[in-house]
Amino acid sequence: MKTDIILAGVGGQGILSIATVIGQAALEEDLYIKQAEVHGMSQRGGDVQSNLRISDQPIASDLISLGQADIIIAMEPMEALRYKQYLSKDGWVITSSNPFVNIGNYPDQNAIIAELKELGNVILIDTDELGKENKMPKAVNMILLGAASKALKSISFDKLCQSVRTIFGAKGDAIVDMNIKALEIGRDCK
């Protein structure tokens, strides 16, 4: 089984931690992984993405083709839409509904949401609200990953939690527990 994931956001929003958690889980499952990242100039507030591919068979390309992505996970809605062409027929979009506006010509937010909804399998999450409500403003990425876990067929939810324990273990139990709770909150989003 192969899963192609596009992670999208703005430089500094933390999309790579999502990739790290999935990557660690895939490594423990002995799966093949390719994960293309953006380093350099764009990390200064520009659009950034990561192509994450996991499979039980060897993977050729580091990049995902048009119409091939099973999941798009985005930290903000316009960045989710940017990779629309890569979404597969039955693919899922999991995105925060809260825009990150650092440019003057940011498009109409309602138009972005409407265009996203046309895609079918879309989960829009008011992460600002959820983060505030649960006092975890810095775990937005884990909420989104939790919501994506249903579409992430090659890795079980328990494995993601295990991966969070491995990666955040050094930072103490409180951080681990918060991130696992964020995964659970995300999983329960519809």
Binding site: I103, A111, L119
Partner: peptide, 20 residues
């Protein structure tokens, strides 16, 4: 031929990097 895929997004603009 490419795989079937959605049209290019309409409501997306460039987001260039900037000084912090």
């Amino acid at each position: 031929a490419p795989l079937p895929h959605p049209q290019v997004a309409k409501n997306v603009v460039a987001r260039p990097p900037a000084l912090c």
